[in-house]
């Protein structure tokens, strides 16, 4: 029981005492008794009386035992950082802008804005860059979380990429299982 709760219960006892002497005939408190009860609850425990000394003693005992408890220190064992937020280099900015432009052209149905040779150059260069990063242990998803790329888009491009280097889908599967990718 907290000291606050203890005080409250003692207050109630005092209030009950105020009520005790003469209850109504049916056992219900009279209006006067109710008023005395409310007054006792409001005033609380008067200083100097036995009850007040008891409360004071309980409070000081608790403070003492709290003080004796060893202070437990928070030891930080490890911090596991959130993944690094992207560093914005000028080239990254430029590439992101280009990606946004391409995305916009696709949305607008302006499929000829970027001619096939430009698309080929971009796909080829990105393929090599991604693979090089992967080899270095710099693993990240091929498309970001908020990308609008659909599963069909991926299948179309993957199929075309495999065809470009004369690979069959089953060979990709074999290579992945052999090399535990």
């Amino acid at each position: 029981m907290s000291s606050h709760e203890a005080t409250k219960s003692l207050k109630k006892t005092a209030a009950k005492k105020a009520l005790a002497p003469k209850a109504g005939a049916d056992g219900d408190p009279t209006p006067a008794q109710k008023a005395a009860f409310a007054k006792a609850m409001y005033e609380g425990v008067k200083p100097g009386i036995k009850t007040a000394r008891k409360i004071a003693q309980e409070k000081s005992d608790k403070a003492k035992s709290d003080a004796e408890k060893p202070v437990q220190k928070v030891e930080i064992l490890r911090k596991i950082a959130a993944p690094a937020t992207p560093v914005e280099t000028p080239d990254t900015k430029r590439a992101l802008q280009l990606a946004a432009d391409i995305e916009k052209a696709t949305q607008d149905g302006d499929f000829e804005r970027f001619q096939p040779e430009a698309q080929q150059a971009l796909i080829g260069a990105l393929c090599r860059l991604y693979s090089a990063n992967n080899d270095m242990g710099n693993h990240f998803g091929a498309v970001g979380q908020r990308s609008a790329v659909t599963a069909t888009d991926v299948m179309v491009l993957c199929g075309a990429l495999l065809k470009a280097v004369d690979l069959q889908v089953f060979e990709l599967g074999l290579w992945q299982s052999w090399s535990s990718r």
Binding site: Q72, V74, E75, I76, L77, K79, I80, P83
Partner: peptide
């Protein structure tokens, strides 16, 4: 404390 970050702390016997 960034989103996605974690701290493993020890308080007494508790981790």
């Amino acid at each position: 404390f960034k989103n996605g970050e974690r701290q493993i702390i020890r308080i007494g016997e508790e981790e």
